[in-house]
Amino acid sequence: MPANTYLIERERRVLESARVGIAGAGGLGSNAAMLLVRAGVKNLTIADFDRVNESNINRQFFFRRQIGRKKIDALAENLRMIEPDVNLEMLDMRLTPANAVKVFSRCNIVIEALDSAEAKKMLIDALLPSGRPLVSAAGLAGWGRSNDIRVRRVGRNLILVGDQTRDVRGGLAPVGVRVCIAAAMEANCAVSLLLGEEL
């Protein structure tokens, strides 16, 4: 039985045969991964170099007892509690312009879920020429202003989620209620692209 019992046969086949890449397993990546597994995606490639920290508990799909563990290991454990049959490629690494294309070469779609603006821009520049859909998020800090977070299609293969403005560097905290809106929108874009639905 798939994690999502509402899927029709065609949808189940599409989601089970696809592979989604996620760059980063923090507020965006861990929650997007959780939602993709619940939606019925079976194959994920997730890259992250960090460990679970106490400051992550406000928004990331981790639990207090997992503080100190590698995020890729803790996230794999949590995703398998949702769907034991999920096929996970968890990579303990820092993404660079030199390795990003190879890491996600088997993925139908990649979700950018990194933290700094520099890293986000690096991944966009590195992956866009491949022509593969890339879903990226920018502008999700602070509280409120839910309606400012939107989805934009840019160029041929970039989908940008966020308000493009609310920046953690500007003194706003990354808080789960708003970060998870962006993470859910990224996951929703990935699923709708796979199923050929409107974004």
């Binding site: 965006l28 990546g29 966009i124 160029g155 493009q164 920046d167 953690v168 990354p174």
Partner: peptide, 29 residues
């Protein structure tokens, strides 16, 4: 409608009736 990647692309000269958009990538995740 095309994303300009790389510094060279940004030195493209603008032409009449071009459509230009810029999307700010800000930190947070």
């Amino acid at each position: 409608g095309e994303i300009l990647t790389g510094d060279d692309a940004l030195s493209t000269a603008l032409a009449e009736n071009d459509v230009v958009n810029a999307f700010h990538i800000v930190a947070g995740g």
